[in-house]
């Protein structure tokens, strides 16, 4: 169908973008797996993190990669507070209420950003922004290569954290059996807020890795939120491995679909996958039959 000279760079581009999508989706899937909440504000929170990276660069001259020390912890605090103060109080026993309150937060956050920063597109200038790395005979932008390996490292670290630490064990316990976890003395409210905080903190990492090769506007989250949902649904709600594989698949589908159908129609493939998976295999490729 295509010459490999076009296809290879396109697939590589898809894989590197897909790794970042996967990173955004990892936070979402962690939150879903533990709290059984679909966080609609995920894209808006990513946008907040991107603006943090941008302003740290603009005002303090901080390189986006150095922002890794500041932005993820800050996002963690925001996530923890949001869960404790707002989201947990909204449920009134119905899942839809959580969805609505996170939708409300998304609208609020996005439009406050629009009010404060206007809809101008902002980018950061880095000395390495236009560097390329040669892979398989194709040139991949250096920031995308960093983002790819950074995303893999973050996923591995998150996996180790969930598997090996006490808090990770508590998170898994709560995810599986809330009442039982409470009975053995796990503070469920705290674990919920920690999970939400970590899920949002991962967005901070994603933002730092993304910013050198991307841009920020108040609406930037829109593009990511549905893609992240697709990945989470594709990979199986709550599955880390699934999110990682799903992210790469979606990245490649978008890149190759864009090549084949053109930029705007290429995105159709993502939503087609989303709808088909939801209809025919809502447990996802890595999930178990409910």
């Amino acid at each position: 169908m295509f010459d490999s000279a076009i296809l290879v760079p396109s697939v590589l581009n898809g894989i590197t973008t897909g790794a970042l999508y996967a990173l955004v989706a990892l936070g979402l899937t962690l939150i879903y797996g533990v709290l059984h909440i679909i966080n609609f504000a995920h894209g808006a929170l990513l946008m907040v993190a991107l603006y943090m990276v941008y302003f740290l660069w603009k005002l303090a001259g901080l390189d986006p990669y150095w922002s890794l020390l500041i932005v993820p912890p800050a996002m963690f605090v925001i996530g923890y507070a949001l869960q404790r103060l707002v989201i947990t109080r909204a449920s009134h026993g119905r899942d839809e209420n959580i969805l609505l309150v996170t939708l409300g937060l998304a609208i609020l956050i996005e439009n406050v950003a629009l009010y404060l920063f206007s809809s101008d597109t902002q980018v950061v200038d880095t000395p390495y922004g236009f560097d390329v790395v040669e892979m398989f005979g194709a040139f991949v932008p250096y920031p995308k290569v960093v983002a790819f390996f950074g995303a893999l490292a973050t996923a591995a670290a998150l996996w180790a954290f969930i598997r090996l630490t006490d808090l990770g064990r508590a998170i898994r316990a709560v995810a599986r059996e809330k009442k039982g976890a409470r009975l053995v003395g796990i503070e469920v409210g705290h674990v919920y807020a920690m999970s939400f905080g970590i899920g949002v903190g991962v967005l901070g990492i994603a933002a730092c890795l993304l910013m050198p090769s991307y841009y920020v506007t108040p609406q930037v989250g829109h593009g990511f939120v549905l893609i992240a949902f697709t990945i989470v649904v594709l990979g199986g709600m709550g599955s880390f491995t699934g999110a990682l594989i799903g992210g790469l698949v979606i990245g490649v589908v978008e890149a190759v679909g864009g090549l084949w159908l053109g930029e705007s129609l290429g995105q159709i493939g993502i939503f087609a996958i989303f709808i088909l998976i939801l209809l025919f295999r809502p447990q996802g490729i890595m999930g178990h039959q409910a």
Partner: peptide
């Protein structure tokens, strides 16, 4: 710009 939606978002929450 955005003010309307800020109001709506706040009301929804």
């Amino acid at each position: 710009p955005g003010l309307n939606m800020i109001v709506y978002g706040t009301i929804l929450v």
